[in-house]
Each structure stands twice: as C-alpha cells, then as structure tokens.
Design a protein around this nucleic acid. Structure first.
Lengths: 224, 224
DNA sequence: CACGAATGTGGACACTCGTCTACTTTTTGT
DNA sequence: ACAAAAAGTAGACGAGTGTCCACATTCGTG
C-alpha cells in the first residue's frame, strides 16, 4: 500500500522540469507531463486531483527539504564558532560581516543545487494560482521566521524588537529571491551579485540600528 | 491608414483582463483573447505575431505611460515645494520622511489605478517568456534610474556615489513590487503596508549613510 | 472618386487536450 | 500465500485549439 514504484515522484520531477524551462505550472498539459514522466495520461489521476494539487505537493516536499537543509547547515555553522557570540553593535564588524557572508552563501548554494524547483517556486510566487501563491509565501515567511530567530539568538542582546526583526527578515528573504534569480541566470556576474546581496543585508541592519538610535520612542509609538 | 477601429487596443485590453484574473500571458489562448475582445480569431494575426509580441507591446504602452505619469507627478510635487532643498543629513528628518511618504503614495496610487496591467507585469517579471522578463526588468531599471536621479537632484549634496544610489534605487523598486501586490490583494491592511514600505526605504537610506560614515575608504576600494 | 492597404470575417484542417470506462499489473498487509 | 488495494495501461469521445485560405469591409490618401 502506498507509493508504488515512485510514479508520483516521477510526475513531480517531470512537472518541475517542464515548468522551469517552458511554462508556468498551471499552463502545463496533463498529457505533456505524463508523457515526459514516461507514464500513461491516466496515471496522473492516481496521484493528483489537478495541477494545484501537484504544485502544493511539490512545495511541501522541496520546501520542507530546503528549510530543513538551511537550518541544519546554519546550526552546523553556528556550532563551528560556538562561544563567539556577536555583540549587538558588532553586527557590522568583521565577525558580523562573516556571518552575513556565510548565510548568503548558504542560500545561493542551495539555489544552484536545486535550480528547477527554485525557479518554479519563485515563478509561482506571483503566479496565477492563489493556492500556490499562498503556499510559497507561507514557505518564505517560515524562512524569515527561522532567520529572525537565529539572528536574535546569535547576538548577546536583541538588536531590535521582535516585530521589526521579523519584518526585516521578511524583506531580506524576499529581496533574496531577486538576487537568486540573477545568480542563476547570470553565472558570469555571480561574485558581484553575492556582494550586492551582502551589502543589502548589511545596509538593512545598519539602517535599523540607526533608526533605533535616533528615535526609539517615535518608532515605538508609531507601531500602534 | 493605421490603427483602424482600435482592434489592437481591444486585444491588449482583453489579454490583460484575462491574464490578470485567470492565467499567465503565455498560457492564454488566441481564440480566448479574440473572443473576449469581440473579434474573429484571425484578427489577432493582423496585429501580433504571437503572444510575446502582444506582451511586449503592452509593456511598451503601459510602461511608457506609467513612467511618464510618475515623472510628471513627481516633478509637480517637487515644484510645489521648490526651494526647500533637503540637506543630505536631513533625509531622515520630517522633510525627508514627507518626501518618502509622497513617493510611496505615488506608486501605490498608480498601482490601484491600473491593477490589471500591473499584476500582469509583475507576473511576467519572473514568468516563462525570456523576452517578457527582459522587457519588464528593463522597465523597472528605468524607474530605478529615474528615482536615483530625482533623489540626487533633491539633495543639496550627494548622499552617496552614483553607483550605490543606483543600486539602492533598484532594490527599493524591486521591493516595492511585493508591497504593491500586497497592497492590491489586502485592502484592509493598506495603511500598514504603506508604513512598512516607508520604513523600508528609510532604513535603506539610513543604512547607506551609516555605511558611508563608518568605512568610506573600504567601500570605495571594494567597489573594484 | 477610386484604388490599395489595412482590418475584420467565415469556414475548414489536423492536432492536442482532459476525462471517462474497462482492463492488467504490481505492491502490500495479514 | 492470498486477496484487496493501489498503480499503471489502452482506447475512445467531444471539445477546444493554432493556423491557413479566400473573401468582405473599412479607411485614408492620391
């Protein structure tokens, strides 16, 4: 009982493959996908109701793996420099910059290792299916939550309040989608893009610290 | 000689209408669009070679209008407060914040006035057609160029070098695509989203000034 | 006016698509 | 080991599609 001879996985792979090079997920043909997977058209119905269903399954699978992978690698990094907690005001010194560099590298490496899944995911982020959009956004928000949590734990004192940290993490994650796409599409500019991403994150942190320093009361009040 | 009875425009409108509610541009059917436009299927060939062609025409038209509209409204705003040049370090004071607030409002207003075209454009930003992607990105980069130029002119002294300003403007424009989509999709959260966008831009500027202040030589050297 | 280009129409072709029913093979729990 | 459930196959139906050809209409300009 269960997953048979992996036809389900073959279908997901075929769909991602086709969608990444040809079209959006929803515009794929049922027969097109089954043909590419080496199955009969009807085999699709055994596993999925429609393409939204397949898409959500793909997001669950790849997303879960990605999130787990990122967390694991991040924890491994953190453990390798255990004890060297970064001081709040030291986010921008060499230790802080090294942290940012490693995190950006983590994301970009994952992206280059799973290009098809990533491209399709980002494509569906603003895509036509509301369900897919919601699923991908939920996933990105989970990443942002993880990231905010890890950063706060890495510092000896909170850099800012939890809400702002969450907001910043979200904006960083979303901006990273653009960096990642550029990174995949323009291999010759990879170093430059990497540096741009690092600068962006650094700028966000420095900016937040500046805002906190110059008008903490005003900001707290404006946050309703 | 020329555009006859506006069938071309009808086709573009129909395509945007269908794509914004149903699917991506490339996945539309030729007959579907012509039917929605009230024309015979063959009329499509009179105006466009394929859907990429239609898409590029739509981007040219809407993009040009948007860019012209934004520039015009921005200049009008600038003229209405002529003489009150903002000092470089005053970007974050009340005058600077007011500037940011107005610019954000400009963009969000335009978006709410042309939702279908905007949604389709953003959808094609990471879409399946390379030509469309390139066209939309070129358009966004034009916006960024305009924005960088206007900001530099508004200040009494350059806040940072031209390259960095351009980079920041690009990142702000790209992030605004997310804010705009949220703004359209979640009318009940509009005030909150507006404030988030303003905070984001403020944070970018403060961050850049901070970076400039703390390590100008290092940055200049790192810029190759 | 009248001619030609631009624009729009109608019908027809071969093709792919999604879906259904009926049948065979494989996997798996007990 | 056996029976049932799950996975996969085969063929066929109607609907919708892209594209082509030949014909009608509109419109601007000589």
């Amino acid at each position: 009982m269960g997953r048979g001879s992996g036809g389900r996985q073959k279908l997901i792979d075929a769909a991602l493959e086709l969608a990444s090079t040809t079209r959006s997920l929803a515009s794929l043909g049922l027969r097109e996908v089954t043909r590419c997977a080496g199955l009969a058209p009807n085999a699709f119905y055994r596993h999925f109701r429609d393409f939204d269903d397949l898409g959500l399954a793909a997001v669950d699978m790849m997303g879960g793996e990605l999130r787990r992978g990122l967390r694991e690698r991040r924890l491994r990094l953190a453990r390798s420099r255990q004890g060297s907690v970064v001081s709040t005001k030291g986010v921008v010194n060499d230790a802080g910059r090294q942290n940012i560099r490693e995190t950006v590298g983590l994301v970009l490496d994952f992206v280059t290792e799973h290009p098809t899944a990533y491209v399709v995911g980002i494509r569906e982020l603003n895509g036509s299916s509301p369900k897919m959009r919601a699923a991908v956004r939920r996933l990105l928000d989970d990443f942002a939550r993880d990231m905010a949590e890890d950063i706060q734990q890495m510092l000896d004192a909170p850099m800012t309040d939890a809400v702002s940290m969450q907001e910043i993490a979200r904006q960083v994650i979303y901006q990273m989608t653009f960096f990642s796409m550029d990174y995949l599409e323009q291999p010759q500019r990879r170093d430059e893009i990497r540096e741009q991403a690092e600068r962006f994150i650094l700028r966000m942190f420095v900016g937040e610290m500046g805002l906190q320093a110059m008008a903490p009361k005003k900001k707290a009040a404006a946050r309703k």
